[in-house]
Amino acid sequence: MFAIEVINLRKTYGKVVAVDDVSFKVKKGEIFGFLGVNGAGKTTTINMITGLLQKDSGTIKILNHDPEEAWEYVKNRINVSTAYYPLSDALTIRQNLRIYAKIYGVKNVEQKIMSLMQQFELSHLADRKVADLSSGERTRTALCKGLINDPEVLFLDECTVGLDPDIAEKTRRIIKNYQQKSGCTILFTSHYMYEVEELCDRIAFMDKGKIIKIATADKLKKAIKKHTIEITVKSRAEELKNFLMLEQMNILLAEDNTIIFEVTCERDKIYKILNKIFTKGFLLSDLHIKKPTLDDIFIKIARGRK
């Protein structure tokens, strides 16, 4: 069963096509990543799914219901959190959370608020106004609001922007734990590829309003055939450069004693070239093998379309 089904979704602003015939399905209990550069159409898609934006055409189903028809059923079972829209800044964290708890008809309001604030390390700031919080604290407050109704489907739009690495890691852990405990479905957008890779079961790449690829992180990485190898030698750098060129390696950088080059990502090939370098008697002082990341894939896919 699917928690979210989107078929041929389209949105235009005048002549600008913001979302162009987008279709995807998110399984129940899945964390589905949405990646794309600014203006790719990720937020527009989420806004249409959550009912904040009117679609031009297409079909949306959440928990097997059309949100326009079963509006109340759907809205009570979803929630959104984003770093870009903080809660009311004239109110305290506790007041904001209390209001949303009451809107969603949460039972044991104060207990729920305390538990969320504890999880996100906000208890000591409970009675501080949102206006006086740091950006990271505001982001965590927005996350508390996102979980206030124990949603079955949660939309996290760039929800970790502004968090320091420690809190960002804790936040990802809380999201993962929550998902595992509740079986909630999460649609997650982020600019941080490592975050998407760590959290998401599948990833959709969006560019210019279209979904251009949906796959698991591993499958996506396999699409990139090259590893990058960085070698620093104690001497004979020029000789090593010439040798690599003879071996038809693509040299990306040669500076002082360091050479960076690309190798097609087959284990044998990397092993063979490194073996040849050792056999030729080059003395290495440093060696790095960089596997393809989602950033590389993203750049490749996005540039490939231009």
Partner: peptide, 13 residues
């Protein structure tokens, strides 16, 4: 002003 419509109207309000 508080850019709060996003949260209000993504809720069942």
């Amino acid at each position: 002003w508080s850019r709060n419509l996003y949260h209000l109207f993504s809720s069942p309000i």
